[in-house]
Design a protein around this nucleic acid. Sequence first.
DNA 1: AATGAATGAGGGTTCATTCAT
DNA 2: AATGAATGAACCCTCATTCAT
Lengths: 216, 216, 216, 216
Amino acid sequence: MSDDNAIRRRRKEARPQELLDAALELFVEKGFAATRAEEVALRAGVSKGTLYLYYPSKEELLKAVIAQHLSSQVAAGAQAAERFDGSCAELLNELLARWWENVLESPASGIFKLMITEVRNFPEIAEYYRREVIEPATQIVGQVIQRGIDRGEFRAVDVPFAIHSLVLPLVMLCVHRHSMGACLPPDTVLDGPGFIRQHIALVLGGLLRRDAPLPA
Amino acid sequence: MSDDNAIRRRRKEARPQELLDAALELFVEKGFAATRAEEVALRAGVSKGTLYLYYPSKEELLKAVIAQHLSSQVAAGAQAAERFDGSCAELLNELLARWWENVLESPASGIFKLMITEVRNFPEIAEYYRREVIEPATQIVGQVIQRGIDRGEFRAVDVPFAIHSLVLPLVMLCVHRHSMGACLPPDTVLDGPGFIRQHIALVLGGLLRRDAPLPA
Amino acid sequence: MSDDNAIRRRRKEARPQELLDAALELFVEKGFAATRAEEVALRAGVSKGTLYLYYPSKEELLKAVIAQHLSSQVAAGAQAAERFDGSCAELLNELLARWWENVLESPASGIFKLMITEVRNFPEIAEYYRREVIEPATQIVGQVIQRGIDRGEFRAVDVPFAIHSLVLPLVMLCVHRHSMGACLPPDTVLDGPGFIRQHIALVLGGLLRRDAPLPA
Amino acid sequence: MSDDNAIRRRRKEARPQELLDAALELFVEKGFAATRAEEVALRAGVSKGTLYLYYPSKEELLKAVIAQHLSSQVAAGAQAAERFDGSCAELLNELLARWWENVLESPASGIFKLMITEVRNFPEIAEYYRREVIEPATQIVGQVIQRGIDRGEFRAVDVPFAIHSLVLPLVMLCVHRHSMGACLPPDTVLDGPGFIRQHIALVLGGLLRRDAPLPA
DNA sequence: AATGAATGAGGGTTCATTCAT
DNA sequence: AATGAATGAACCCTCATTCAT
């Protein structure tokens, strides 16, 4: 019996996460409004009623999904940036490539599409997202660029603009993967890592002073 | 009678467009599923029933909205690319800047968010979008880059990757404007033209051969 | 102009009847509730609005349809019964055969199906129908049978029962023609006059005293 | 739990039948189009939504109502006809009287009115009805009459006509009961069994050879 | 008189949520 | 804790009716 209970308890403790995973998948796939609460429950392997034992409403479920994926998503990046001691170009390379691996290649990447589709319907989420994601991510990348400029590695470009030039394609790629990308034949889909490498090289081409040595 | 009818007919002929405009706004704002048919009607200044005199269902209305904004959206760009006789760098500058003005600054820019949120629910739309927008737009930009490479103006980069590096930030910016951007204080919003100018400069920095002269 | 007006006026004066005809057809075909007012108008060759110039509502149109077809439908039969001087058997033969020709073979035959389907939704119609149709028709046939009994031509059967035995099959045949009959291949449909002749012969076989001479 | 579930399951299992019963009543009373789905639900003692847990649409509910009442409705009659060993006249008496009791006196009798009012709107129902009801019922009665003719009990009448002469009044009576009959004072309504007895006697009077002995 | 665009109440159907078991 | 039957508010869509032309 203790054994059964152990399984049961493990099962029970896994429930919220299983529900969040199912919800993320479906909300990203079909949108929040077009997803039925029962679908989420079924995909998580429980009944409709059980969903409501863990989340008081479909909307709270959405918020939980978002909260989970936005918290401490950027903490890791910040630490990497602190410790790194190579050139700024190399650091950017490192940061964005790692970020791609950790976030964009995972199911969590859907969160970006989800944010895009739902912020305007749930305004409280907007501020949360700005504070937890945009702000810190912008800061990390911005600091590296600023450091590159200060060190004479980069030209004196407009830093906020440069951040967008670097980051937006990656985010967009990730959104694409969950919208059009999901409708096209898989071989059509862009090779992520390959693209990132060249993209950073291109933008660095504009960032680097002409007299600076090219990065490896 | 002719006069009376004229007024009436003008009204009637304007209805479809008024409805499409209202629908675009609302579908972009709240998503297709979360928008009530009656809301669209009211924003267009008519009653619920009137909507159905012009479009047989909410779904057909969505398709009409999309069809209208995707048709011949890229034709203009193609012509500009044909006629242009300056350097490829200048042509890219010209193309993207003009595209920004014509599309992204207009209400039509919302169509990108709409596509992202709805393609997976309406698969027929995906193919249509690929054929009418992605394919031709990719070709135009791709041809310019290829020409630059052939002429010795650009380095021998991977063309499809380069297209994405150039274009995705603009699209993403535009999506952003209709999602997070609509939730933040207006002064936070990025300056479009300024960004575009620097973005192109940055990427061109990576595209141009180091020994080539910088564009004006 | 006078000529145009003449046509117009003729046209106009024919309108109510054209509308009634169209309404009868459609109400019989699809039922009152399932028939749209506009359908009636279109079948009558006018626009939706015009229908309402002649009848204030769909329900009033139904009542007009019914009233038209029930009034004086039986008057003719009554007179024939008065004048006839042959045997009662011959008279019944005559009456029912004629009734079949005049009523059941005409589009007006649909009125029976219409009554069946709609009386319960429009109770005021019931009394009207009883008074105008059932009562007089019953009386006419009943009188003939009663006379036959009084004269010693028929056995002393229950008269109301006998009326039903004679008349119900004809009515049912007629209802059938507008329901199942309309769904089957036309060659399947029963030959009306042939049936009537044998039906009356059969029932007369039971009515006539065994020692009476058979009718021609 | 088993007990609780038992009650619950019994409830759930009874629902479809309760809904079918309510639907039959209302569709017969008001017609299919004029009956609201919610009315059916309320009469069955459940809420609007519950109806849709058991039947996917109002139209499917109609089909279920019809299917239930037409299946195996005539099987019993066929068996009785097989086993019977009296005279054909007695057999007809028996068959029709029994049919009256079993079908026409029950709420199921409404199905005839329902068929009449709805076949033309749901063509698939027509074929079904012909195959399941008309065809077999016609055969049973037809065989008895034919046997009577073969045995020299009946005259050589036209069999299909004779079938109609026997059966149509009963069907019509039954239709009447759910249309006009429901609008008249109850005491006006014809006495079914009494009528059937005399009706059969009358028609048999025409069927039987004059030299044959009258049935008891 | 005739039209047909417009209206909005009404009915079919869905689905978030509740609650008895 | 888990289920799933039941509810009813809400939404899509239809159509009887109106009315400006």
